[in-house]
Nucleic acid binder design. Sequence first.
RNA 1: CGCGGGGUAGAGCAGUCCGGUAGCUUGCCAGGCUCAUAACCUGAAGGUCGGAGGUUCAAAUCCUCCCCCCGCAACCA
Length: 564
Amino acid sequence: MKKQLITSALPYVNGLPHLGHLVGCLLPADVYARYQRQRGAEVLFVCGTDEHGTPSEVGAAKEGMDVEAYCKKYHDLHVAMYAGFNLSFDYFGRTSSDQNKEITYRIFHGLEANGLIEEKVTQQVYSPDDNRYLPDSYVMGTCPHCGYDKAKGDQCENCTKVLDPTDLINPRSVLSGSSNIEIRETKHLFLNLPKLEKELEQWIETKKGVWPDIAYSIAKKWLKEGLRERGITRDLKWGFAVPRAGFENKVFYVWFDAPIGYIGITKQWADERPDERRWEDWWMNADAVRHTEFMGKDNIPYHTITFPATLRGTREGWTEVSFLKGMNYLNFAGGKFSKSAHRGIFLDDALAEFPADYWRYWLMANAPESNDTNFTFDSFAMIVNKDLNDVLGNFINRVIKMTVANFGAEVPPTGPMTDAERELYQSLDTLIADYTKYMDGLEFRKAMSVLREIWVSGNNYIARMEPWKVVKTDRAYAGTILRTALNLIRLFAQLSAPVMPETAARMLAIIGEPATFVWPTEKAAVYLDGVPAGRSFTAAEPLFQKIPAERIEALKVQYKETEA
RNA sequence: CGCGGGGUAGAGCAGUCCGGUAGCUUGCCAGGCUCAUAACCUGAAGGUCGGAGGUUCAAAUCCUCCCCCCGCAACCA
């Protein structure tokens, strides 16, 4: 079995992450990593904060901090929130690390050696009052096409026309508002993507029908339009210095070193235990590694075109992405979640309202895989109340209570199996095979739908067997039914663990099982005979609590869901 | 004519590659059950598949044109 290298797009350090970030890459990567570990695969799941670039510099200035301290502060906040959601990173690093600098330089020199780096003089907007060069979108002015007075230097939001900052009438800095704007000539380094276009195209073509449509089509779109040379340096202070004469005041562009961060962060991980970990085992070992990347659709061009080109251009044989899981957006109240406007639900708030597993299950069951998806509290409460409380939680509760009432708090002995049990085993075999197939294929919505069906099959079994009646006439057979049901709890825990790790551990604890998770690969009958008769268990509180209607309405108001 | 994704019961989605009686969840209605968190199980009703045209014995599916929603457009990340 190949080693499973799993990466989630690196969240930008500036500001706090929201549910969109969680569902777009972090959470599906975590669910997949947990699934692969449960299957016994050797997994390395890395992520970290993306720290360079203008927004960090500007954000630090706003808070009156130096950039390094600012990034550290937000890095630590990210770490705390992800811990709250039980994201099981093997390492959560930083793109500003020394290790990432080392790898970035190595890759840069490799590209240089192969003649893929070129110098070009470009025109950039400079704001003397801000004392910095401005990215195009940091310049605001009146659109020459439609007269909209808040058009940005890259595009007019009103008429959607693509602009250059120099097109704007009365241009001014978004930061200071100053209209004292200069156009300065400045020299930058470019990666020659056209030279790699052919081989990228051939490579992407092999992903047709393999990767999600959205990943393949976005990559194809860029190739179809023809690749252009791409700037990889910027006139900033915060970032990795460019190791070339004449570039002393410049740094690498954040999009150059951010994806390299996957490798740099792996080296951070390896450097913690150099005697037993080697980053090269993962990144210089392409044949033995399957690399799965998770990201929102906005990141797809960088992970299908520029980053693969960056790695290939060195001719060093880096591990390339094997499967790219591109996700659409999670919307809130009909629009995007927004960091800058603080619109939507942020992770700290989410955890303060409900346990992590409620969110994890809703987000995976409604993952924006083929469409943009709306988050609404109505939908959230419906899924939590129905799937988690009524179907799964109530199943466990009724089985435990019935057993305690009739046999005391210990697992009753099992008599001979009947056709009813055989049918249950067979239907579970089919369902588990489907579930496994969808998890392997990273089709999370479908996987969650089958998981729910699996839970339903437990209720179905109980309803058909009517152990509350059977116990009055055939106590031994009632014991068989209930012990089967108790074993179902164990099986459900194993199958639910990738998406709801805390809940799964609680389910196992109820029936006295240790919290070790192993994926069921044998026939269901084996798993329904695992909890021994006579073992005592602890009757617990219900696993979940319902969200009452008043609470839903209050949440809608509090988080401004109904706002137009 | 910039590019991509989407439009399928009231709501949320699958099915489209490879044409063959349109499926799932929820909601609504009815029945069963009364162990359980007023929960569970079963059944029924509900759709001219965004619109128009074409190909075909047959179109949600293939082709052409049009409409609507969302995203992207390389210096925000």
